[in-house]
């Protein structure tokens, strides 16, 4: 079991922390998720699906937690976003620590949409369902997250 834990813990921690933006909360979620998965592992028909099953538990728990937060505002569609100006590989000079930090500084909703869509491979329709928002809100929140990230990271280049 420890081998399985070692194999998945970092990825799950990253996934949860990108949603919750809180290390201690994510550690609790990870603990519960692994425990649940180990207790119910016999129900899993295909071993190969363990990772995606575990991730589903982690994501659901993380989303449940952020939705229960008092300061979690309902997500709205963000209008009039500027079209992105694509510079050539401007981001390659930025360290991953800085990128990670920039992601964590995104607003809760935008960060959750960004993580689910880009890093976890959710469709906007699925995100809309799990976050109780419309598909267009999910799309606009994603574009908003990218815009904010670009801004933050661009600033970091000149600091």
């Amino acid at each position: 079991m420890q081998t399985i834990y070692e194999m998945f813990s970092k990825e799950m921690m990253a996934t949860s922390q990108r949603i919750t933006n809180h290390r201690s909360d994510s550690e609790d979620i990870l603990q519960e998720a692994f425990l649940t998965s180990f207790q119910k592992i016999s129900l899993l028909k295909e071993d190969q699906k363990y990772g995606s099953w575990l991730k589903r538990i982690v994501i659901n728990s993380s989303l449940k937690l952020i939705k229960s937060r008092k300061n979690f505002n309902s997500l709205n569609e963000v209008e009039h976003l500027e079209s992105e100006v694509i510079d050539q590989k401007w981001y390659e000079e930025i360290s991953f620590e800085v990128i990670q930090e920039a992601i964590h500084q995104l607003p809760d909703g935008a960060r959750a949409v960004f993580s689910l869509y880009l890093l976890e491979g959710y469709k906007h329709k699925e995100i809309a369902e799990v976050l109780d928002i419309s598909v267009s809100t999910s799309k606009s929140q994603y574009r908003y997250a990218i815009k904010l990230l670009r801004e933050k990271l661009s600033h970091s280049l000149y600091e």
């Binding site: 991953f96 992601i103 890093l119």
Partner: peptide, 17 residues
């Protein structure tokens, strides 16, 4: 930029739990 983030997803993981 999005592709770059996705391709380096593992770099965004914590060093240890």
């Amino acid at each position: 930029f999005e592709k770059y983030i996705l391709e380096n997803k593992r770099q965004l993981e914590p060093k240890k739990v």
